[in-house]
């Protein structure tokens, strides 16, 4: 996977106005999740259109993973709902999940399975069989550069490879919606560069949400950034606009997540 700078094309940046709502592949409406004693996600609403790469930012414990888990249908929301490619996550969970590629936090996978075995398993669950299955698995492995370890058990792989196995699993069925929880965590700088290139290449056809706390990543791959703190959306802008609010992105992030609204 060569990601020479020239190949990278930035998707045009759709406005987050009513126009993009029409083509929104991810629609979140007043999503709220309360656990015993605290509210992890508090009345969050936004939409992501085809072609958008949304950077989901926030300090640890801000509600990023909880929001993503609800979108992926793992946690039921306390109130509010969301639609993935038009399918309601609660009323039509299987349809919503079919349209979704999800990389859970920490990229979990069955340790005793080989890379090929694991990807074939998720492919079979998604309804592929025979030659079509083999082709999808080969494609996903090529995109994430897993060919060299295809017959190795996942437990023997390095952190970077494991992350890419999770990514391959999310991409396998070429879903219109991708939700990736910290896709570059644990990767070395070269691998980070490759994964960002991969996300950029897929961006034009998909709606993508990636969570991260690496701010440079947002500037590098995202067309839009949402900052979440204490379960609430505190900023929703392009990375450039966000950085323009202060001397640099780091300072803006600190001000947004520590400063206002703390009281």
């Amino acid at each position: 996977m060569q990601t020479g700078g020239g190949l990278v094309h930035r998707p045009s940046n759709p406005t987050s106005s009513g126009e993009s709502r029409l083509t929104a592949l991810i629609e979140i409406e007043r999503l709220t999740k309360r656990f015993a004693g605290f509210t992890a996600v508090d009345d969050v609403s936004f939409a992501v259109a085809r072609g958008e790469v949304l950077g989901f930012l926030g300090p640890n414990g801000a509600g990023k993973s909880t929001t993503m888990r609800m979108l992926a249908g793992f946690l039921p929301p306390t109130s509010g709902t969301a639609r993935i490619a038009g399918a309601d996550i609660q009323a039509q969970p299987v349809a919503a999940k079919s349209a979704l590629g999800f990389l859970p936090e920490g990229a979990p996978a069955y340790p005793d399975m080989t890379v090929t075995g694991f990807l074939s398993f998720t492919g079979r669950i998604r309804g592929f069989a025979g030659a079509a299955l083999r082709e999808k698995v080969a494609q996903a492995m090529a995109m994430t550069e897993l060919d060299s370890v295809r017959l190795q058990p996942i437990e023997t792989l390095s952190k970077g490879f494991k992350r890419r196995v999770g990514l391959a699993q999310a991409l396998l069925h070429d879903p219109p919606v991708l939700i990736l929880d910290e896709p570059t965590d644990g990767l070395d700088p070269n691998q980070k560069h490759e994964v960002r290139g991969l996300i950029r290449r897929m961006a034009p056809d998909k709606a993508i949400i990636i969570s991260t706390h690496i701010l440079e990543e947002v500037a590098a791959v995202c067309t839009r950034a949402i900052v979440i703190a204490r379960g609430r959306v505190v900023a929703d802008a392009t990375p450039t606009a966000l950085a323009g609010r202060g001397p640099d992105l780091d300072t803006v992030f600190r001000d947004l997540t520590l400063g206002q609204g703390a009281a």
């Binding site: 793992f74 299987v94 979704l100 979990p108 996978a109 998604r126 699993q169």
Partner: peptide, 14 residues
């Protein structure tokens, strides 16, 4: 323990 339950229940199955 492995976290694979999150993977399993976000695959399109009942």
């Amino acid at each position: 323990r492995l976290g694979t339950i999150e993977l399993l229940f976000t695959l399109p199955i009942e």
